[in-house]
C-alpha cells in the first residue's frame, strides 16, 4: 500500500454534469459487478414471485398437463375454504402468542441476566441460545418423541407436577395441537429474542443507571424508566422478526404434524405445500402463496424501514 492520498472521492452523492469517458467506464464496472447478483436474483426470486401471482389465476396441477384460466376463481374458493381460514387463524395465533411469550419472556430473562446476575452470564447465554442453531427438523423430531402419547417425557413431566396429560395426546387433540407446537417454537426461539435484547441492553449507558441509583431508584423503576425506553428500537425489531417468523412457519409444523390431525394445525406454509405437492392443486397453492406474500411483504417493508434508518449506535 502506498501512502494514502488525500483526494477523497465524494461518495454516494449524485454527480451529474457531463459524463466523461472515465466515468462511463466506471459505470460499466458498477453494472458488471452487480450483474451476477441481479441475474440470479431476478431469475430465481423475482421471476418466480410474479410467476406465483400469474399461476394463482389458473386451475393447474404439477403432475398433469391440466392448465385452465379461472381468473380470481381460486381466491373466491379460498374465501369459502374452512381449512384456509383455519390455517390463517393458526398463523395469527402463532404470531400473537409468539410475540407475547417470546418477546415477553425474552425481555424478562434479558433484564434478569443483564442486571440481576453476575456469575454464569455466559453459560446462561450459551444454553439459551443453543436451540437456535439446531434445525427445525431435528427440533421437531426430538419433540415428537418428547410428546409421545404413551411414554413421552412431556407426559412424565406433567404427571410429576400432579396434572393429567391430554387423553388424545399432545399432538393428537385438534384443540390443543397448535399450542403444543407453540411450546416447541417458544422453546427454540425465546433464547434468540433474549440475546438480541440483551445486546441492546448492554449498550445502554451505565451512567444513566448510576445516576438513577444516586436518586435511590429501585431496579424495577430503572427497568421501566431507563432500560425500556433505551431499547425501544430493539424491541420493535424483535417483535417484527418474531411476526415474520410466525407468518413463514413451515418446517416445524410439517415435521411435528403435517398440519394434522385433520388439518387442525395447518398453517399457510404447510397448506401451500399440501395443495401443490399432495393433492396436485398448484394453482390453488399459488393463490395461498399470494396471500402469504402480502403478509410477508408488509412486515418485511416495516422491518426494512426500521433498519434503513441511519443509526448512531453499533
Amino acid at each position: 500500500m502506498t501512502d494514502s492520498l488525500q483526494t477523497h472521492k465524494p461518495l454516494a452523492t449524485t454527480r451529474r454534469t457531463r459524463v466523461s469517458a472515465r466515468q462511463k467506464r466506471e459505470w460499466l464496472d458498477g453494472y458488471v459487478l452487480v450483474a451476477p447478483a441481479i441475474i440470479l436474483f431476478v431469475l430465481l426470486v423475482v421471476y418466480p414471485m410474479f410467476s406465483t401471482i400469474y399461476l394463482s389465476l389458473f386451475d393447474y396441477g404439477l403432475t398433469d398437463a391440466r392448465i385452465r384460466f379461472v381468473g380470481l376463481g381460486n381466491f373466491v374458493d379460498l374465501t369459502q375454504d374452512a381449512v384456509f381460514w383455519r390455517s390463517l387463524r393458526n398463523n395469527l395465533t402463532i404470531l400473537v402468542v409468539s410475540v407475547i411469550v417470546q418477546v415477553g419472556l425474552g425481555l424478562i430473562l434479558a433484564a434478569l441476566i443483564d442486571r440481576g446476575i453476575r456469575w454464569g452470564k455466559g453459560l446462561a447465554r450459551t444454553l439459551n441460545f443453543a436451540p437456535v442453531v439446531m434445525s427445525a427438523v431435528a427440533v421437531g423430531i426430538l419433540w415428537q418423541l418428547i410428546y409421545d402419547p404413551t411414554v413421552g417425557l412431556a407426559n412424565h413431566f406433567v404427571r410429576a407436577i400432579g396434572l393429567t396429560p391430554p387423553t388424545q395426546g399432545w399432538l393428537g387433540d385438534p384443540n390443543i395441537v397448535i399450542y403444543s407446537i407453540l411450546v416447541v417454537a417458544c422453546w427454540q426461539y425465546t433464547g434468540y429474542v433474549m440475546i438480541i435484547i440483551l445486546a441492546g441492553m448492554q449498550s445502554v449507558s451505565q451512567e444513566l443507571y448510576e445516576a438513577a441509583e444516586i436518586d435511590g431508584a429501585t431496579e424495577l423503576r430503572k427497568f421501566f424508566h431507563i432500560t425500556l425506553p433505551s431499547i425501544r428500537n430493539v424491541n420493535i425489531a424483535v417483535i417484527l422478526i418474531t411476526m415474520i417468523g410466525a407468518i413463514k412457519v413451515f418446517d416445524l409444523v410439517y415435521i411435528l404434524t403435517r398440519g394434522g390431525p385433520a388439518n387442525a394445525s395447518q398453517v399457510m406454509g404447510t397448506y401451500i405445500y399440501y395443495n401443490a405437492f399432495t393433492v396436485n392443486q398448484a394453482g390453488y397453492a399459488s393463490a395461498i402463496s399470494v396471500v402469504l406474500l402480502v403478509f410477508a411483504l408488509v412486515l418485511g417493508f416495516l422491518q426494512l424501514r426500521l433498519s434503513y434508518r441511519p443509526r448512531e449506535d453499533a
Binding site: 410428546y147 409421545d148 402419547p149 404413551t150 391430554p166 387423553t167 388424545q168 385433520a262
Partner: peptide, 15 residues
C-alpha cells in the same frame, strides 16, 4: 385406546 390420532402405526405394532 386414547391418543389414537397421535399414535403412529409403528408404535401401535409395538404395543
Amino acid at each position: 385406546g386414547d391418543a389414537v390420532n397421535s399414535t403412529t402405526p409403528d408404535a401401535a405394532l409395538i404395543q
